[in-house]
Write a protein that binds this DNA or RNA. Structure first.
Lengths: 196, 196
DNA sequence: GTCTATAATTAGATAGAC
DNA sequence: GTCTATCTAATTATAGAC
């Protein structure tokens, strides 16, 4: 049983960063190879299936790590929904290149359908599913009111809104730090816009 | 004063549809030309600056139309925030290829900085700004509570959440129609998750 | 595991006829 | 305004030496 190769790990890490930031079509194999300190022909040793397989392997590895990191943050603040959502927001804002909507709609169609489908499910379960889980727990504790059929809907909306905030931050955010805006966003989700 | 050329309009319409759906890097000039019924070399007559200019012209034209359509829907349901937001949701769900976050983060960096910046501002003003406007109006009518500095934040979150819903719909939505889920999402924005 | 060399194809772009 | 023809460079991929 061989250990996981170190160069392969570094290659996948580099590939994940580039593909996540710029998208599948924009990144060329030479870009990945140069960033990893390899000749582009060497990539075919690690990913015999070529660009599509390299992308799939890199994204699977990245999504797995993302899900673990998010889960860890959510579990660390157990018992209070607001603290959990704030932890989730912190995670999103700390991850520079997160654009899972683009991955789903624009990148995955470049892969064989079964592979793309598996990655889409992995992304959805690991990220939206984790948020849906804490929402369900809070509902069970009586903190919030939420139908079982809507936990994924609200979890997805939360993730999308936070990633949009992260995207917009550099260009359009006001003078206040992103973390403060995320807090304000959580206020809206928890208390609503209408006066109480 | 010449009238706007018809073939040019159709070309821009086709280009906007393809670029919006698949992104700048994935669409080749030959794809656009074929869909428009032209030889790819003919594109340089309409966009002498090549692919980047064709993309910029197409997106500017598309964003202008989007802003007008959204504005029309918002103005049609004047006087009630919920009806206005429902109209906005209907517009988002009716537009198959909307992924403005990807355009901002992944597509625009392929353009000259000034051009990309102008399009980014146009997108933000026309879409998020329109939503921020109806939020501000509702605030002034006393329907909701919202700081002036947060109208754009909440407008952006609304747009992102609705587009994410549209994205997720085909693959992960439950049995209920997207319009119903959009309604439920508006409930959360208006009333919050916490019990009242 | 990595490289050199090379093939095969694709893509953006230009010149010039009609 | 559109086409044919052509060019140049980039891109994915493979074969085989080390």
């Amino acid at each position: 049983m061989t250990e996981t190769s170190v160069p392969r790990e570094r290659l996948l890490e580099v590939a994940e960063r580039l593909f996540s930031k710029h998208g599948y079509a924009a990144i060329k194999l030479r870009d990945v190879a140069q960033a990893a300190g390899l000749h582009h022909s060497s990539l075919y040793h690690h990913a015999p299936g070529g660009k599509a397989q390299l992308f799939a392997d890199a994204m699977q590895r990245g999504l797995d790590r993302h899900a673990r990191e998010l889960r860890a943050r959510l579990d660390a603040d157990d018992g209070d929904l607001r603290a959990q959502l704030r932890a989730a927001a912190g995670w999103v804002l700390a991850n520079p290149a997160g654009n899972h909507a683009r991955m789903l709609t624009t990148d995955l169609p470049n892969l064989p359908p079964e592979v793309g489908e598996r990655i889409a499910v992995q992304a959805w379960r690991g990220l939206v599913g984790a948020l849906a889980g804490v929402l369900r727990d809070a509902r069970d504790r009586g903190e919030i009111v939420l139908d079982d059929g809507d936990t994924w809907l609200v979890g997805g909306a939360l993730l999308a809104a936070l990633q949009a905030l992260q995207t917009a931050d550099a260009r359009f955010a006001g003078p206040r730090p992103a973390a403060h805006q995320a807090d304000r966003l959580l206020d809206v989700f928890l208390d609503g816009l209408r006066p109480r």
